[in-house]
């Protein structure tokens, strides 16, 4: 049986339907990515699975325990790393882990060894006795990751684990996540809007939009579903209709000043394609990304959503900065 099972899981706030019925089945040991723009229902879904939010309808179970009827058992079996930093910044690193160990009832005989093992995993041993207020953003994240793991959950939920971090730190965090999943043999469910990063880390992804899963599969499967390679051109006055009529072209989209063409066997058909367009200023071919999948399915660019939409993460980033003081 799958470690996470959801059946028509839904949540509404008054008239607003945040999650509109999600059916998922996630196997033990998977790293599963829940991808989607702001307000798509990612955080709400995770909130329900962690028993923080009560579903309006539908059901779900984790490690065989129903999230509504057996919340204490579910809580014991899940670890969660929130989008916002939730460390106790007056306590030291080791004290934060100790508090967590006590709350989860990890017996004192193994507490110390387990905490050391965890600090070692994220290379925080030499800062363990420092107050976490003095930690950098990346260090705080790392500590939160292992705090979520401390009680050996069956499932670890990570809500935007790299939000607000610089690219280098983000790459390191992903390395740690992969290492943790391997070492501990646990199931990881994460949300992120960094599509490229999700591609590298996740075994399987579900794309969620307006509270529904609109695509589900391995990153390769989803990219293959686009039907081939991406050709991106800068063209004056592109003959869109002509392009759409070509047999080997599976999609044409305008993105800024660029024409993005999805086509099969680009290496064979590119000369023919170029012969039909005049005034080509530049051409670039690349493999499709998950972001292309997202654009194809929703007609929107997830990156644009995140720069234009103020929404949750600008606020989180602001709070994040505030906490650094």
């Amino acid at each position: 049986m799958a470690i996470i099972e959801t059946r028509a899981l839904a949540k509404s706030y008054g008239k607003i339907q945040a999650v509109r019925g999600i059916d998922l089945s996630i196997e033990k040991g998977e790293i599963f990515g829940l991808l989607g723009p702001n307000g798509a229902g990612k955080t709400t879904t995770i909130g329900m699975l962690c028993t923080i939010l009560r579903p309006s309808s539908g059901s779900a179970s984790i490690a065989g325990y129903d999230i509504v009827n057996k919340p204490a058992e579910v809580r014991r079996n899940v670890g969660i790393v929130f989008q916002d930093l939730t460390l106790d910044t007056i306590l030291t690193g080791i004290e934060n882990l100790e508090l967590h160990a006590r709350l989860y009832g990890i017996p004192s005989v193994i507490r110390k060894a387990r905490i050391e093992e965890m600090l070692d995993l994220v290379d925080l041993k030499d800062r363990a006795h420092d107050i976490t207020r003095t930690y950098s953003g990346g260090m705080r994240r790392r500590l939160e990751l292992v705090r979520g793991l401390l009680h050996r959950p069956a499932v670890l939920f990570l809500d935007e684990p790299t939000l607000g971090l610089d690219p280098q730190t983000r790459a390191r965090i992903w390395d740690y996540i992969k290492k943790m999943a391997e070492n501990e043999g646990i199931t990881v469910v994460l949300t992120t809007h960094y599509m490229e990063e999700a591609e590298q880390v996740c075994d399987r992804v579900g794309i969620i939009d307006y509270g529904r899963i609109i695509a589900l599969g391995t990153p390769e499967e989803l990219k293959d579903s686009l039907g081939g390679y991406m050709v991106v051109m800068r063209v004056n006055d592109p003959p869109l209709d002509t392009l759409r009529g070509l047999p080997y072209v599976s999609g044409v989209a305008l993105n800024g000043g660029m024409v993005e063409i999805t086509m099969k066997e680009a290496h064979l058909h590119l000369p023919d394609l170029l012969s039909r367009i005049r005034n080509v200023e530049s051409v670039e071919t690349r493999a499709p990304t998950l972001n292309d999948v997202f654009i194809k399915l929703t007609g929107r660019d997830i990156r644009e959503e995140y720069t234009e939409d103020t929404g949750g993460w600008v606020e989180s980033a602001a709070r994040y900065r505030q906490r650094g003081n």
Binding site: R75, F82, L85, T86, R319
Partner: peptide, 13 residues
């Protein structure tokens, strides 16, 4: 406000 309670409130307590 600084979310310290959040992590405590999801514990099995």
């Amino acid at each position: 406000k600084i979310d310290v309670l959040k992590a405590v409130l999801v514990a099995p307590v």
